[in-house]
């Protein structure tokens, strides 16, 4: 009988589910947003539906991410640092440094033998995260998805001195009024974010290969700006949003395997596929 393992990564912006056995069988990404955050179970249901699998057929489920607490359908909670490390090491075994640019946080992870051995996280500030770009995109009246391509057209990057989201918003609007081309502003924003992230991750000693994950990795303009800061090309997984959920599924699989090898029972929760209560 085939065994299935699932990883659920409930981030501040998106919820990601990956189901694996020997390989990735299904993955689903859905919004976490305020009205959706209780509905992480729906994302899990969608992944199960893709495989026509009943919930009870999943051997082990690990939850990770900011919203991992009180997920009623997970057997265990593991930090996203460990899960991202495991997921990236599986996809790109040469990775030594991971830079995860999420919706509302950003982190650097140092890997050794596929495990996280050091980390750095941004402080309680939106600068250096996807949220920063979202706010500015709205102020500039452009779609978030357009920003990457726009910035690549810039001849130079405008200087953005503020990385405080509120002040940066004012700064870009006033620069736009001064006639600074939109693409230069966007390139400047990417540079400002990259500078902030680079400063934070440099607390760790950045070593090759550097892998960028999270929603930020999908923004080619931001990735280019990061590469300019680091001084060499970075790698990114095929779907950079899924590394945390994949790592969670893999860690669950590892735990079950180890328990079987040791002849001890696997610690499971009385899981139920229902709404998450979140920090109740």
């Amino acid at each position: 009988m085939k065994e299935y393992f699932a990883g659920v990564d409930i981030g501040s912006t998106m919820t990601k589910v990956v189901i694996i056995n020997e390989t990735i069988l299904a993955s689903v990404v859905g919004p976490t947003g305020p009205e959706h955050r209780k509905l992480a179970n729906r994302v899990m249901e969608e992944a199960l539906n893709k495989l026509s699998l009943p919930f009870s057929d999943i051997t082990y489920i690990v939850a990770t991410g900011y919203g991992r607490v009180n997920v009623p359908f997970a057997d265990k909670q593991i930090t996203e640092i460990s899960c991202h490390a495991r997921g990236v090491a599986n996809l790109i075994p040469t990775a030594r440094t991971v830079i995860d640019i999420g919706g509302q946080d950003c982190k650097g992870i140092k890997l050794s033998n596929g495990k996280a051995v050091d980390f750095a996280m941004n402080d309680k500030c939106a600068a250096g995260t996807g949220r920063f770009l979202e706010v500015i995109a709205e102020a500039l009246g452009v779609e978030l998805e357009e920003m990457a391509e726009l910035s690549l057209k810039a001849k130079k990057a405008a200087e953005i001195s503020n990385t405080c989201t509120v002040f940066a918003e004012l700064e870009v609007v006033s620069k736009l009024a001064e006639g600074v081309p939109l693409e230069e502003l966007v390139a400047g924003l990417h540079e400002a974010i990259a500078t902030r992230i680079y400063g934070m991750v440099s607390r760790l000693k950045i070593e090759k290969d550097v892998v960028v994950t999270g929603g930020g990795a999908k923004n080619i303009g931001l990735v280019k700006a990061m590469e300019a800061k680091i001084g060499y090309p970075v790698l990114k997984p095929e779907d950079p949003l899924l590394t945390g959920a994949l790592g969670a599924a893999l860690l669950g699989k590892d735990m079950v395997k180890q328990a079987i090898e040791k002849g001890v029972p696997v610690a499971r929760s009385e899981r139920q596929l229902r709404e998450a209560t979140f920090f109740s």
């Binding site: 930090t79 640092i81 460990s82 495990k115 996280a116 050091d118 996280m121 309680k124």
Partner: peptide, 18 residues
């Protein structure tokens, strides 16, 4: 931020474990 602090503590313990 309690959530942020606990998040960091969890991650730190995971790295110490590793």
């Amino acid at each position: 931020s309690e959530a942020d602090t606990h998040q960091r503590i969890d991650a730190f313990i995971a790295t110490v474990d590793a």
